[in-house]
Amino acid sequence: MIKIVDLHKKFGHLHVLKGVNLEIKKGEVWVIIGPSGSGKSTLLRSINLLEEPTSGKIFFDDLEITSKKVNKDKVRQRIGMVFQSFNLFPHMNVLGNVTLALLKVLKMKPEKAKKIGVGLLTRVGLKDKIEAYPNQLSGGQKQRVAIARALAMNPDAMLFDEVTSALDPELVKEVLDVMKDLAKSGMTMLVVTHEMGFAKEVGSHVIFMDEGQIVEEGIASELFENPRHPRTKAFLDAVLY
């Protein structure tokens, strides 16, 4: 479903992605781990076309989305993204956040959009908050709204960039639970996270990234039990105590 071929990204002289290759199939949940600055966010942002690759190609269902000819807005409609900093729209209530793209991008009728919005907010456990504004919500609630908002466009894949890193520890679980449900429902997911518990439990595959390269990738259970590369091992030892 997502295929990445020799992806490079430079910011000026800084070579952030140094030839990433990856193939993700429908329904798989890939967890990306790695030290800070290794290029995890840049990789996700490239897939969502928020960064333009310096070279290399990304395919989405056989469509080369890095091609100049492709309509980026259309591609992004099919790939949802959730950010560490929530990025909810503060001038709209929760339902407004979730339905905005339905109304303005898909030009959906308000009643229909509302029905979808309420359905998704119920799914993430926030049915009673649809009238609330983002600044009235806890971090965990905000992030669940952000997930519902991304799901509203009915994407084929979802990207999560450290979505629990800005949360108080006691709020992490409610967000991870929503993501678990999503994974169970068969959503194709790419998840950058430091939550190793989640990675082990939910991830089908794991990537360890360091210095702009995929150092090691594999089936989640195997990679955690038997890391082959010394750098992976060192990293896992450090984060798993």
């Binding site: 807005d73 790939i79 949802g80 503060p90 905005l100 793209a101 991008v105």
Partner: peptide, 27 residues
């Protein structure tokens, strides 16, 4: 306005102008 606002809007499939009109300018 935080850059994340535009990025969130774009990631939903909005065009640049839609992101401006419905997300950035109202704020």
């Amino acid at each position: 306005i935080d850059k994340g606002q535009t990025e969130a809007a774009r990631s939903l499939g909005m065009s640049y102008m839609q992101a401006m009109r419905y997300v950035v300018i109202p704020q």
